[in-house]
Amino acid sequence: MPASEKQQVAPSPSLCTPAELHAYLRNYERPYRAAYYGDAAHQIMRYGAIVGSRISHYRSLPRAMDYARQLIDTWEKGKISPISGTIITADQLTGARGRFTRSWHAPPGGLWGVLVLVNTLLPASRRLLPIAMGITGWETVQLYGVQRATIRWVNDVMIGARKLAGFLAYSFVGANGSGEEYDLLGFGVNVNNREFPHHLQDHATSLGEEVGDAIELSEFACRFFAKLSFNIGLLYSHEHDVQHERADADTSHPLISRLREASGFIGRRVRYGHDVEKAPRYEAVAAGIDHDGGLRLRLDEGIELVEQSGEIRYLDENGG
């Protein structure tokens, strides 16, 4: 890594330290969840406690996902076990990318980073990781009274036609013969960054813009990480319950029920495609979500298809 880049990625005081996160979980998140989940909240939060076990913050990174991969590689080569639940954040990302070749604007003011998980989930739970990220973003935004926020399948957090938060997931196997599976869950939330490049102006918004005030970024980060901890815990906890026959694998996962609640897409006319902007495939009405998170799309002929990947764009009057 060049010296200038090394300087750039120098650690900086964390937006939310593990101790602050722990206090937030204990004082706010647990009582809030217990009201809904009862005693089960405790088990869920124990499972999710790995999230934020280590939190590193940097002034600037080219791309958090790439940095996390480099870090894992370095750890593995040094025979150091990567710490599952590590969160890496940066004030700004200079080379942020969305899916495919899309650019992602990540200047100071937003919450940009990645959660590193060493995979111990079964495939049925692991597939829901991107949904857990979207629910986390949506729930955190709700804390600021933004009731208009919805999720556009799979996990874009939208305010009307504008995107407020986006999430990426990338899985891979360690390259150094460890055989360890990793999940990198990237997050990008427009918090106080209100200026967007021209091509994004009609498609992006920020939380600060929506509430008409500056948001305390450290507090937002702690709230976001606390919700992330719970939702990741929910994946493990539900898997445990299914294995012990305390929950039915064929009924909806709690995260899917939450996605239905947060959905801004069910009943709307959409365009679908794997890369919907470059290669749209067809138009349909989003009819619902399957119990495994698949999107049910009803064609004009009445036929229903279920898509397990890809993305949608709204076609009705509200755009987006």
Binding site: P130, I131, F172, V173, D183, H274, R281, G293, S309
Partner: peptide, 29 residues
């Protein structure tokens, strides 16, 4: 492999050889 907006590299584990037949279409599950 692309599933629910999660991309995963898939590593080949068979015998060395040439790709003789392709049975999938990129945009179809």
């Amino acid at each position: 492999m692309s599933l629910m907006k999660r991309d995963t590299p898939v590593f080949y584990d068979g015998r060395e050889g040439v790709i003789h037949s392709i049975y999938f279409e990129p945009r179809v599950s």
